[in-house]
Design a protein around this nucleic acid. Sequence first.
DNA 1: CTGGAGACCTGGATGC
DNA 2: TGCATCCAGGTCTCCA
Length: 277
Amino acid sequence: MPELPEVEVTRLGVAPHLEGRLVDSVLLRRDGLRWPFPPALPTLLAGQRILSVGRRGKYLLIHFAHGTLIIHLGMSGHLRVLPPGTELKKHDHFDLVVGSGAGQQVLRLHDPRRFGAVLWHPNDDGELDSHLLLRGLGVEPLEDGFSGGLLFRASRKRSAPVKQFLLAGDVVVGVGNIYACESLFRAGINPKTAAGRISRGRYDKLAVAIREILAEAIVQGGSTLRDFIAVNGRSGYFQQTYFVYDREGVPCRNCGAPVRRIVQGQRSTFYCVNCQK
DNA sequence: CTGGAGACCTGGATGC
DNA sequence: TGCATCCAGGTCTCCA
């Protein structure tokens, strides 16, 4: 579920409930997800104040004075802010309880497939950017530094299809399977084209498309933010109007030709043979 | 360095 | 109804 917009909407949703508050306790309901939970987490965080909630790519970063809690939602994870005592559901793996008394709230991580992660980076372990999982990440697509020029330069000598080039995350972060498909459609680029054979001008168009599509998705998600504190929290995310993703055989919204599905790197790619050359 | 395949998991949809 | 198969929003690890 979570690509960059979903993670950013999650960040916007949970931050007001976390920032400035003291951690009461941490509950680990299993040993870990993709990697083991740091067993010392409850001790490390109890009584500590949350300074801010940030994001790097698809990683959520909960900053404390002495380190950062790194949370990844994997394929199926989501976070909710709930009243204490909320009934536990299957696959609720991790709680961060903040505040005390009537103001207490629980940040709860739910992740059926368990591809997510909860990790701890102590400040005395060096810069957060040098953390093993963060060090190889590309630029943020919504920040300065992301441009068609960057995509163009980074793609020279890359023979992989442009779809895979975007998904790899070492040049630009946060573009997952859905938004890679949608961005390439908006830019009119065939996902199979070798990244290194795409012109500067077409990358300019692609960079704009990526920016616009991610920003639009975040705006749409913003309208559902209160779901993050709903007890029976519905999806919390949003229904994006896709142009090609998950629309195999359906007429292209632009030209009417049936949308095609192919497999690249063991992932589905959806595109329009007419509109994407 | 680059690129491709396998790995990690559960659950929902589909087909016989 | 039951069971098998396929598919899913990520990304690390290993190998050629």
